[in-house]
Structure formats: structure tokens, C-alpha cells
């Protein structure tokens, strides 16, 4: 098959501009994984592993737990690759959506017993976007996203960041920001819509 040699040579690293062929290669790899191709799985891991681990680290924070979750996510990618439908989004979106969900699940079960609201009230939620984790690299994608986030209103940005990066439910976010539930829901939605437009997400 003509495609075979291609995924041995990554077209671009995850922190470079995403060329269309890179996006397509990830799809081809994931579709090959769905057919049980272990070499394709290895190649896919080489492309998206650091993205998966990046978001998991960001949400879960604890290094040992993050490693576990990253492994779980990738095994899940292997197991359920057949569910990926290219008509409904890119391979990268599919994988990172799964990674985020798993990371959030871990954080929520971990913290179910604690009073998270109190914890955060003490701790001041608003970490600088740059102060992610020591190992997180500053990338082109990072700069783009930071630029896009700066176009949001404070409330939109806080709502999206608290939910996405820190794993709070919208009910918790409403409490933390002392804002009505309905407003928080709406700000999450219109904040993401604005980001979508700023980032040119198709």
C-alpha cells in the first residue's frame, strides 16, 4: 500500500503549524489503527502523544497520575478507534476530546471527597496562562491560543478556562465566579464560539 512508508517520517511536529497533510496523516493513521495496525498506533503515538500528555498534565497536574491517564487514553484510542468517524471531525479532535474527558474524570473522582470550591477560593484561580507546568513548552499553537483567548471578555475567558483547564463543572464555575448558572452556560458557549472564529476552526 502506497501509504505505508509515509508515517515513518512525521511531516511536522505537534508544535508547528498544522499543515493539511499532517491532519490527514493523523486520520489515515487512526483509521489504520482501527483495522488493528500496531505500527500505525506507534506512529500515531509519536505524533499526538505529547499533546495527549500535555492536556492531561495540565488538568490532572500530578505527574504519576498524569502518566497513568495518558496511558489509559492511548489504550482507549486503540480499543475504540473503530468509532472514529472522519466526517465528524479530525483525528486530533477525537483523541484530545477523549484525553480531556479522561483527565476530567480523574480529577473529579480524585476530588469528590474534598471541598474544591473552598480550595480554589483560597488559592486564587487565575494562574497566568504561561505558568502551565515546567515541562510544557511554549509553542506556536500556544501563542495562537493565547492570542485568541485574549479576545474574550473576562467572564467568557474565566468560564472557559476554569472548566477546560481545571475541570470544574459549570455549576462550580457559577459558584466560583458568583455568577448565575444561566449566565455561565451562555458565556461558555459564546466564549467558545468566539474562540472558534478567532482560531478559524472549520
Amino acid at each position: 500500500m502506497a501509504l505505508e512508508g509515509r508515517w515513518l517520517h512525521p511531516v511536522a511536529g505537534p508544535d508547528e503549524v498544522r499543515a493539511p497533510e499532517q491532519v490527514r496523516d493523523e486520520e489515515v493513521l487512526l483509521l489504520a489503527v482501527a483495522r488493528g495496525d500496531q505500527a500505525a498506533f506507534a506512529a500515531l503515538y509519536d505524533r499526538v502523544g505529547s499533546l495527549v500528555h500535555g492536556i492531561v498534565r495540565r488538568v490532572v497536574r500530578d505527574p504519576a497520575q498524569s502518566e497513568e491517564v495518558t496511558q489509559e487514553v492511548m489504550v482507549e484510542v486503540w480499543r475504540s478507534a473503530v468509532r472514529f468517524d472522519p466526517e465528524r471531525g479530525s483525528a486530533r479532535t477525537w483523541i484530545l476530546t477523549m484525553a480531556h474527558r479522561r483527565a476530567i474524570d480523574r480529577v473529579r473522582s480524585e476530588q469528590a471527597s474534598r471541598n474544591r470550591t473552598a480550595r480554589v477560593a483560597d488559592q486564587q484561580y487565575a494562574r497566568d496562562f504561561d505558568e502551565v507546568s515546567e515541562r510544557v513548552e511554549v509553542s506556536f499553537e500556544h501563542e495562537q491560543v493565547r492570542g485568541a483567548l485574549s479576545t474574550l471578555t473576562d467572564l467568557q475567558r474565566q468560564a472557559v478556562e476554569l472548566a477546560y483547564y481545571q475541570g470544574y463543572t459549570y455549576r462550580e464555575v457559577a459558584e466560583l465566579l458568583d455568577t448565575p448558572l444561566g449566565t455561565v452556560k451562555t458565556r461558555m458557549r459564546d466564549g467558545l464560539i468566539r474562540l472558534r472564529d478567532a482560531l478559524g476552526v472549520a
Binding site: Q38, Q71, R92, L96, H100, S133, I193, V201
Partner: peptide, 26 residues
Amino acid sequence: ELQATAARLGAASVAGAPAGVREQLL
């Protein structure tokens, strides 16, 4: 569309997983 947007937020954080992870996964 919004999940694709959220994934971009995710992709802004890049962190290499510990070296052993790849081997273990395979």
C-alpha cells in the same frame, strides 16, 4: 465545532510523556 475548538485549547499544552510510556503501550 466547539469540541474542535476545545481541542485547540488542549493542543496548546505540549508535554512529552515519560520515555517508558511508549514501550509499555506497545
